[in-house]
Nucleic acid binder design. Structure first.
Lengths: 245, 245
DNA sequence: CGCCGATATTCCATATCGGAAACAACGATG
DNA sequence: CATCGTTGTTTCCGATATGGAATATCGGCG
């Protein structure tokens, strides 16, 4: 099972999607609409009509010239270039979500302050952003939002905005080119009878692995910002699972 | 301009998207395919064919019964329910990206270790995940990935996996129901001549605002994990901008 | 003034989508 | 045991959207 998405920017009536961005890039590269149509193996009419449609909502995107020794050509306006950058940033942000591991912890909401909920899980109370009407939620924690600390160097709660803290033991490392996935078996809460040992995955740099001397068996403290922990309503079912990729 | 996305899960050949999930939910609610078709105002044949198509790739999703006093009916299998939960989690994760502020810092790549790049920005070196071929990148930092610390309580670099650290002054607070957006004017790097004062936005809980006594004018240290800072290639243009919503 | 390469426009083939209608299964009911 | 009602299954047809071939238009340059 593979996570994916189609990002788009909605501007007034039109939606700018992947193929539109691809089209603008091709126009920029080729210097003409017809060239872009050839390069993308799309028909010229549709491509040109699409440009017109986008421009009706967004404003001038392509500066067109006809005639001349080379027959003319087209170049992107500043508006179009800004659009491309916007889209790239959007994709980068979403891409991060798609490529990163997530850990889910579920349990009942025991306290609530607006959209901020305290969830009782098998590893203790977790503070997370959750829909206001949910009585039981599954909290999703992205591995790139998990920070690790040496047990002796844990920041005092009074001095940091990070609100969730878990103690655990490293069980495995998955070393990549520059980043390392770290599997952590969390300490269960004292009054919890959970069957499955709750696991948390963190994504850290290889340099952090060396600095903190991370290795299987070592005790570690993981921290997660409440605003990075997102809960979804889960009023029927119940499970603790880790979702690889 | 509005960010949006269409999430989907790809399983073998089929992609299950929003409408598929909506369909399965309706089947669950109504207890029959025909009821779901009525509720969604979709034609029965297409709906039924879609269920069959999904099942061919994913496996049994709907337990169907024909005949009986009530004419029969359908209920979801465990596979289908798990699919719904998966999808909810996916949406929650993407939703977080769409709703959160982002700060972009750009500059040249001065060092690189695989997909991890050190980027020279107007506020100093930033460690971020970036495409391997980019010489100049824009680093995007989501506000929910920014942690704040009292200047006297900054964790030692040797004891934490958090690699980016910025000093700054709080310039504004936007207090919501439970969470607060914090605007921070970053200290410029000594040898930088940047024109715009670089601004970082952090998203923290209201309780953190009280604990850290956050208010305009106060000095603060912001930290960001390298794996949560994502860079995009930006080899032509150059700007520092903050993108609200 | 004709040429050339590019931009606009018209029109048609095709695939996809959605729905109406007929058909089959099955248990309750009399 | 025939009938009935509800639901699942299948077939077929029309509407809509998508993509492309052919055509017309433009304008500097030689």
């Amino acid at each position: 099972m593979e996570k994916a998405f189609d990002p788009y920017l909605r501007i007034d009536d039109v939606t700018v999607d992947r193929s539109d961005v691809e089209m603008l890039r091709a126009i920029d590269d080729c210097g003409s609409l017809s060239g872009a149509a050839d390069a993308l193996e799309r028909s010229y009419p549709r491509l040109q009509q699409r440009v017109v449609a986008l421009e009706q909502s967004i404003g001038p995107l392509v500066e067109r010239t006809r005639g001349g020794a080379d027959g003319g050509g087209s170049s992107l306006t500043e508006t179009a270039r800004e659009l491309l950058v916007r889209f790239d940033r959007l994709v980068a942000a979403y891409e991060g979500v798609a490529r990163v591991d997530e850990t889910a912890l579920s349990g009942p909401v025991v306290d609530r302050d607006g959209e901020l909920a305290t969830v009782e899980t098998s590893v203790g109370a977790v503070l997370a952003v959750a829909p206001a009407d949910a009585a039981r939620v599954a909290v999703t924690i992205r591995s790139d939002a998990v920070s690790l600390h040496a047990p002796s160097e844990v920041p005092r709660p009074e001095g940091t905005s990070v609100r969730n803290r878990f103690s655990g033991t490293i069980t495995w490392l998955d070393t990549g080119a520059a980043v390392v996935r770290v599997g952590i078996e969390l300490e269960r809460d004292t009054n919890s009878d959970g069957a499955e040992p709750p696991e948390l995955v963190a994504l850290v740099t290889r340099q952090s692995v060396e600095t903190l001397e991370l290795e299987p068996g070592r005790s570690i403290v993981a921290s997660v910002k409440a605003t990075a922990a997102r809960g979804i309503a889960r009023d029927e079912l119940d499970a603790v699972s880790t979702d690889a990729n």
